[in-house]
Simulated assay, not measured.
Amino acid sequence: MTTPLPYRTALIVGAGIGLSASLCRLLVAEGIKVGLAARNAGKLEPLAAQVGAETFAVDASSPREVIQLFDQVDARIGAPDIVIYNASSRVPGRLTDLAPETVRKAIEISAYGGFLVAQQAAKRMLVDRNGAIFFTGATASVKGFARSAAFSMGKFALRGLAQSAARELSPQGIHVAHVVIDGSIRSAAHPDPVDHVDSTLDPDAIAQTYLALLRQPRSAWSWEIEVRPWVETF
């Protein structure tokens, strides 16, 4: 027998048409009201119309806009008891060539925005001592590649935030988890190579892992989990 989710409303920040869309469809199928937030909310309208989700515009690195986002979500669909932070920024390039201001902004989106969103989420969840805050990580969360300083710094910081928040909030009834996506996510623009089947992660399969995390009994919560294709090397 499937355990019902102890949640009613979800907010996905940094939403797009890949993993976020899979998460949205899966949560709606579970009877969860879903809000989708992104800098360009217009790109989310087709998905929102298809599944009955609400869309919101936000710059996740702006404290003012994040506060406004949660106020709008509260008013339109109710305070979220599931919050998933998917926003990130990649600025590839040699260390000596990177523009400092561009790197600063990338870290703000990948990590500082996660703090802002988690802070607003926690303030609401602590009232009932119930909720889930999930952060989407990457291979760069645990492995800093060459020419990827900005992305690695942001993802390492996000992982540190998740670990700290899990230790602080879990004893207060809030499940905090960090999901390391160790590999490329499959999409129409980036399909599996015909000669290397299943070498990318199916976003629907990743979403199932998030759902399994949401269903975990609190006596056995995970704060971090990794997912990778079966052919991926460690």
Rank of each mutant, 00 (worst) to 15 (best):
S110C: 02
A150M: 02
I206Q: 03
K123C: 06
D195N: 15
G35M: 05
L213E: 05
S170F: 13
A212F: 14
S219G: 07
V197N: 08
S88W: 04
A60F: 08
G18M: 11
V58C: 02
D202M: 05
I77F: 14
T102S: 07
I181C: 04
G173C: 12
F234R: 14
A29P: 15
A149L: 06
F115L: 00
V83D: 02
N86Y: 00
R215L: 08
P4H: 08
P203K: 10
I107Y: 03
A111E: 04
A48Q: 13
S219T: 08
S222R: 12
G42A: 15
S199Q: 12
N40G: 14
L11K: 05
V176E: 04
V51H: 10
W230G: 12
S61A: 04
A10H: 09
V176M: 07
C24I: 11
S187H: 02
A57P: 15
P229E: 06
E30Y: 09
W230D: 11
P46D: 12
Q163N: 15
A106P: 01
I67E: 07
Q120I: 05
S187K: 01
I77D: 09
L169C: 04
F135Y: 08
G18Q: 09
K105R: 06
Y85L: 07
N130W: 09
A15D: 02
A138T: 08
Y85M: 00
D81P: 09
V73G: 01
I225S: 06
G16T: 10
H175F: 08
T139P: 03
I225L: 11
T55Q: 10
A140V: 04
W221N: 02
A162M: 11
A87M: 04
V227D: 05
A21N: 10
I77Y: 11
A188P: 10
G31A: 14
L98R: 05
D204V: 12
F56K: 10
I225Q: 05
G31R: 15
V231D: 15
P92N: 05
G18K: 03
